[in-house]
Design a protein around this nucleic acid. Structure first.
Length: 371
RNA sequence: GGACGGGUGGGUGAGUGGCUAAAACCAGCAGACUGUAAAUCUGCCGCUCCUUGCGGGCUACGGAGGUUCGAAUCCUCCCCCGUCCA
């Protein structure tokens, strides 16, 4: 049995400590998954990621399909081998690009017509096509194509998107059972429903009937307030089976993570640590630091005195500011390294807290420090 | 000594009578970023006052005068810089 998810402990909040076993290794949950859209977590080498103890990373179907192409990656031995990443990988389906690519795409019941952001060429991504690409890429966990909508959205729009997402989930599953290998890859379904709790529950319940090895909650943190994100997550989770992993897609800010974990979320991913790092926004135990600010120009202290990452052990704020202001590529490397360490460290602390039933304490401490 | 060309806000550099406190870019200052079209984007960027408003006052396009209702833009003289000729 290549795939296995076990809940090892639960916390009074409802948080779960778990272990997800995949063909490429074990992922301790709750887990944060760094985003490596184009088969690279920007500015970090795979060796860096291993030293950070990233246990699983994301890659993106739409982007890799366009470049370098899934067939090429298949011929080169699959995504793991292609990018020399021996640990677990999850591929997102391109559903988020349905949302983010704006006027470069057109959604129908059949699928999504994309205009490539690279060269303007047209491509049709159906749920089956997304599966075909993801099978070729060979990630451990693959996501069904979904329709992610903006928030706030009319209930009718959210209902339509959820219904379409469900239909696509059904087709994905069907296609996968004919063409995929469930001992190598696990397909996760995705809950939609906008900011409407009833739709979220409906979507989750219907998805559960299709019996996926794991479930994701998508279409959140796309503009709605945090408490709404939480309510929607709660609504979805309440309908998901306890024994399956739950993945909240695309979240979140550091201080929000314990909230999601407390709602029973096992996996998360977010571009925030990596993108913000490249933009000079650094997360520390005392809150965010915009490293280009003049106040750090001659600051000899480490970025975060409480951080044990390689960057904080070695470099000063003044140096990091200099690198950033000078546009040096090392700035992105060091900043990203720190931010990822910060996120992954929070996850380690969260797992530890759950083990001892003290997540609530950790959550309030963290939020007090970061707000 | 003569002939051209030129001197614009921290920098480069548009602008050749009013829509110009003056384009654009850079630098500077601040903010944003949530399944990555993002090493990106946004705001501010002469001084000052307040009732913070597509508000008032002041200063500003080498210097001093002048023409004009109105000048960075036109005229006169002067000072600098560059190129060329003696």
């Amino acid at each position: 049995m290549a795939f296995q998810f076990e809940v090892l402990a639960t916390d009074p909040t409802g948080a779960r400590l778990g272990r997800l076993t995949t063909p490429h290794g074990v992922v301790e949950t709750p887990a944060f998954m760094p985003v490596g859209t184009a088969a690279t977590v920007k500015s970090q080498t795979q060796q860096d990621l291993e030293s950070l103890d990233a246990q699983i990373i994301l890659a993106n179907t739409y982007h890799l399909y366009l470049r370098p192409g899934h067939e090429l990656i298949r011929r080169l031995g699959g995504l793991h081998r292609f990018m020399s990443w021996p640990r677990p990988i999850l591929t997102d389906s391109g559903g988020y690009q349905v949302f983010s690519l704006g006027d470069l795409r057109k959604v129908t019941d059949e699928g999504v017509l994309f205009r490539s952001h690279l060269d303007g060429s047209e491509h049709f991504l159906s749920p089956e096509k997304a599966m075909e690409i993801e099978i070729a890429l060979g990630a451990d966990i693959i996501m069904v194509l979904d329709e992610c909508i903006e928030a706030p959205s009319e209930e009718s729009r959210a209902r339509d998107a959820a219904a379409r997402t469900l239909a696509w989930a059904r087709r994905s599953k069907e296609f996968f059972s004919g063409h995929g290998d469930s001992s190598c890859q696990a397909v996760f379904g995705i809950v939609q429903g906008g900011t409407h709790a009833a739709l979220r529950q409906e979507s989750a319940s219907a998805l559960v009937e299709l019996d996926f090895p794991g479930y994701a909650v998508g279409g959140l943190a796309v503009g709605e307030p945090h408490d709404v994100t939480c309510r929607m997550t709660q609504a979805a989770v309440s309908c998901l089976p306890a024994e399956k992993p739950r993945y909240l897609m695309g979240v979140g800010k550091p201080e929000q993570i314990p909230d999601y974990v407390a709602l029973g979320i096992d996996m998360m991913d977010c571009v925030l640590p990596t993108r913000s790092a490249r933009h000079g926004c650094l997360f520390t135990s005392q809150g965010r630091i915009l490293i280009r600010n003049t106040q750090y120009a001659s600051d000899p202290r480490p970025l975060d005195e409480r951080c044990r990452c390689a960057v904080c052990r070695r470099y000063s704020r003044a140096y990091l500011r200099h690198l950033y202001v000078s546009g040096e590529s090392l700035a992105a490397i060091l900043n990203t390294h720190h931010n990822l360490f910060f996120y992954l460290d929070i996850m380690r602390e969260i797992r530890e807290a759950i083990r001892f039933g003290k997540l609530e304490r950790f959550r309030s401490d963290l939020q007090a420090r970061l707000s």
